[in-house]
Amino acid sequence: MLRPVATFLHGRNAFYVSLLLLPPLLWLGTVYLASLFALLTQSFYAIDEFTARIVPEFTLKTYGQLFTQPANVDIVLRTVFMAVAVTAAAAVVAFPLANYMARHAGPKMKALCYVGVMLPMWTSYLVKVYAWRLILAKQGIASWAMTSLGLGGALDTLLATPVVGGPSLASSYIGMFIVFVYMWLPFMILPLAAALERVPGSLLQASADLGARPGQTFRNVVLPLALPGLAAGSVFTFSLTLGDYIIPSVVGAPGYFIGMMVYQQQGTAGNMPLAAAFSVVPIVLIAVYLALAKRLGAFDAL
């Protein structure tokens, strides 16, 4: 019954392709791009301070608010610092595992690793965050384990660190950092493993054959060729940290993050333009980051 349709489509390649692309393009165009555009437009409006109504006229007042009020600048900086730290830590933790999965694991072990990396993503995000709050609580498993190992003093010293410390892991930036790294690690491991898997083993042998010690081979061959994966993974960890509002409100110190600010401004505070301006920050940061990565040649090996 479908044969006439197939026969009709055969040879009409452009028509066929546009038929395939129509649904996703409609979705992307209307639902995604249009709302993004609406968001950008909103950020150039401002709120009337007396009536709390949005005045639909072009103004940079909201951005002025964002970049001149010290509290808002603090929120942006705090979020960016956290995102950079989480990204760096995720890259360092992910690399050895991704390298093992791509280069050393047998087929069975490799499948097991992939399942192991993705398994936590099948669990509810909220369950994991609240579980972490319990783990990191003052009387939680983490502090109990460290005390039992005789590392209680080290934990106290760590928590006594100004700014990042706090009364317990669960109410400090260190704890928040740990949860962020845990949450986004799969998003770093998977692209990194995919990139490393595309590096032929003969390149590493050739490097050793020409006299390069393992460290030199890593710096000169493995790392440059893994850069596209590292860039992809870091875009994930970076943007996910920039936008998240649940982890900072459940775990960690009381300081605000961009995501929390967006949530609050568009909800209780009813300041949609400021919420929009806050959400433009991650978009701009990621764009700058990608431009930098491209300039540094991260995508040359693609």
């Binding site: 032929p200 003969s202 042998q205 440059p224």
Partner: peptide
């Protein structure tokens, strides 16, 4: 030194 079957030239 070795000349590899796939040449193993560094693409970057």
């Amino acid at each position: 030194n070795t000349v590899f079957q796939d040449y193993a030239l560094f693409p970057h």
